[in-house]
């Protein structure tokens, strides 16, 4: 058994793999390096900051989607589905009408790299993708089931710290995603606003779901929709009880709002 705690800089943020491996240090690190390579590969493909990435070429109209790696159309199709699932509150089309799935590429890649480790025999771990958390089905410590939710301020802020803690043991949820303006400013566009201007009606939203990427999609959608997202999700959950999402909204005045099932998730001593 080898306990690991590896942090990797990628996509402008930090990914952290933490857990216990049945293999020795050498084999474990070898697998972690490969898992991280999945993250970097996704970054090379989808970064709009890299001039020659397939997605940059697509955005400039230099390449058609069928000429790009198949993973690009896979994400494109998924985004279309998520746009429907969220009634249009999630949209990968930017205000300038280019395909920009940056918002979910991070968790999408995180999920792929976590799955890679699971397939190769490392199952007892969590992955923190720059503030979005994936929990392995087979984590063995109490602590790994518990996720703190950060206050709606930057990690670097003087008053940084957690607002509350949720405990996902015994629940079907394995992904926790948070969207807010505390770190990167108003970076989420509102797909339904004229000119898709940035959403700014709430401070932060945390969404808990079975799947990390879908939780991330809903967190982005909820941030765009604002307070009404809670009612929206309650309605969605009533119609989709086998794939529901629970959300905690922190309003600009620090008031809390949550979906019907969220209160049961708070950690108890």
């Amino acid at each position: 058994m080898y306990e690991f705690n590896r942090s990797e800089d990628c996509m402008g943020t930090v990914f952290r793999f933490h857990g216990r491996s049945p293999f020795d240090a050498l084999k474990t690190i070898e697998l972690l390096v490969k898992a991280c390579e999945i993250l970097h590969e996704a970054d090379r493909t989808f970064s709009l900051y890299k001039e020659n990435s397939p997605l940059s070429r697509l955005a400039r109209g230099e390449a058609a989607i069928r000429e790009l790696p198949p993973v690009v159309s896979e994400i494109w199709d998924a985004c279309e589905l998520w746009e429907k699932q969220t009634d249009g509150w999630f949209s990968a089309m930017s205000p300038t009408n280019t395909f920009d799935p940056s918002g979910i590429v991070k968790t999408w890649a995180a999920k792929r790299s976590a799955e890679y480790l699971v397939e190769n025999g490392i199952e007892d771990f969590t992955l923190n993708a720059g503030g979005d958390v994936w929990i392995g089905e087979k984590v063995t410590t109490e602590l790994d089931w518990r996720v703190g939710i950060h206050k709606p301020v930057s990690l670097a802020a003087e008053n940084a710290g957690h607002l509350t803690v949720i405990d996902l043991r015994g629940t079907p949820y394995r992904g926790v995603a948070t969207s807010g303006s505390a770190e990167r400013g108003l970076h989420i566009w509102n797909p339904k606003a004229p000119g898709k201007v940035a959403a700014a009606t709430i401070a932060q939203v945390t969404v808990v779901g079975r799947d990390l990427v879908e939780a991330d999609v809903w967190a982005t959608a909820c941030f765009a929709e604002g307070e009404r997202a809670i009612e929206h999700l309650n309605t969605y959950n009533a119609a989709n009880p086998s794939n529901d999402f629970q959300a905690l909204v922190i309003k600009l005045n620090d008031e809390l709002m949550a979906t019907d099932g969220f209160i049961e998730l708070f950690a108890k001593n």
Binding site: G12, S154, I166, E183
Partner: peptide, 30 residues
């Protein structure tokens, strides 16, 4: 009850922290 539960949960330990996607810079600063 929402605020009350959130508050009571705050004193417990946790393994990960979820927040808005931080930058490498914010992480290093913290």
């Amino acid at each position: 009850p929402l605020v009350q539960s959130a508050l009571q949960a705050q004193g417990t330990n946790f393994g990960n922290l979820s927040g808005a996607t931080y930058t490498v810079d914010a992480f290093k600063q913290a």
